[in-house]
Nucleic acid binder design. Structure first.
Lengths: 193, 193
DNA sequence: AAGTATCTGATACTGAAAGTATCATATATG
DNA sequence: CATATATGATACTTTCAGTATCAGATACTT
């Protein structure tokens, strides 16, 4: 089958695409998910109809923007020890939540997962991808004997992600990175078991 | 100052109060937070105005309903060991999330937390109260030497609450209760540290 | 008993915002 | 040149929260 049925009339203007995309990103960071389509069009300097020609619904527009946002690479630490690597991940994550705008938007996105399964899908997939990319850290740790080989790594990562999400959503302070790492690796029972 | 300035006209009908309250609870479980005020009035068999006379905004109405929901007592286990007590808490919590309607509503409430600070306040306060009520479990455990005396108990409880909230929001399966308890108490490092 | 304030259900109105429709104009294919 | 689609502008439709008004009911005050 022919891949391009040869488009007939005037082609969509890529400049308009770009203007809309960047307006959405801008407004998302400025004012969170509660943005009106008129605002987007106005901020992009573009006709309202052109926005709706690209996205059938506001939800589609936001999903596209969120997918972009999650599509940023994350650094994989290699400090030589699991404690060091984990600490790095924790510190980086906590640092991101320090930015008020990032924190506010993260809260809203997490919140949206509770109402829209498609957002939940997006977040779930993105988080899993991201975490799977740090698997190297755990592989090395198991080789070095710093991690039980039978560890449920998803549980490990989700305990941390969950803590951040939960406290973030409720605007509770996050504890010291070392405290977190220690709890995850050694638990709350007294030393020596 | 006089406590009651003596109300003049017709008094609000307690029966109407009750009908509205129960209609809200009903609809919340049936259809989640996305309920219209007309539906509430209709389902309660009550005039629309009577709803707005009691709650200035829909938000107020929902906050009142949520406060009621959180105001249910939770059993405090005392099995004789921290492992047993914790396991009980975990099992009970996971059981609640098994009910699809409870899960869906919990997701939505957690989600609302990301958009409305008042909801976040309510949830935070309720969760803290509830968890503080289980403090006895940890006091006993510390006495028995099953828990480090310097433990950050909020971190312990929030690691668990966070895991449930995070996986619940994203509709991910929760692990085996024993697995959770073991991770919290002993961590992911190999035995013997 | 009279007077007045407030509740009650019913109904209509206002305003915001998503989504649809239409139009004149611009730009691309054939 | 003919046709098809994009563009911005503008107006319309629908849904829903919140407001306003009304006639009738109820309870307090004098």
């Amino acid at each position: 089958m022919p891949s391009s049925p040869s488009p007939r009339g005037r082609r969509p203007d890529p400049a308009v695409d770009a203007k809309i995309r960047s307006a959405v990103m801008d407004l998302l960071l400025q004012r969170g998910l509660e943005v009106t389509m008129d605002e987007v069009a106005a901020h992009a300097g573009v006709g309202r109809a052109s926005v709706f020609r690209r996205y059938a619904t506001k939800r589609d527009m936001l999903l596209d923007a969120l997918a972009q946002m999650f599509d940023i690479q994350i650094a994989i630490p290699d400090t030589g020890s699991l404690t060091g690597d984990l600490r790095q991940v924790v510190v980086d994550t906590l640092a991101a939540w320090q930015d008020d705008r990032v924190a506010a938007l993260s809260r809203q996105i997490l919140g949206e997962t509770g109402r829209d399964p498609a957002v939940a899908d997006l977040v779930r997939t993105s988080m899993r991808d991201r975490m799977a990319r740090t698997w190297a850290v755990y592989d090395r740790a198991i080789e070095r004997g710093e991690l039980r080989p039978d560890s449920d790594l998803w549980l490990l990562t989700d305990l941390f992600a969950g803590l951040v999400a939960y406290r973030g959503l409720l605007s509770l302070d996050l504890p010291d990175p070392d405290e977190i790492v220690r709890s995850l690796l050694y638990g709350f029972a007294p030393a020596g078991r």
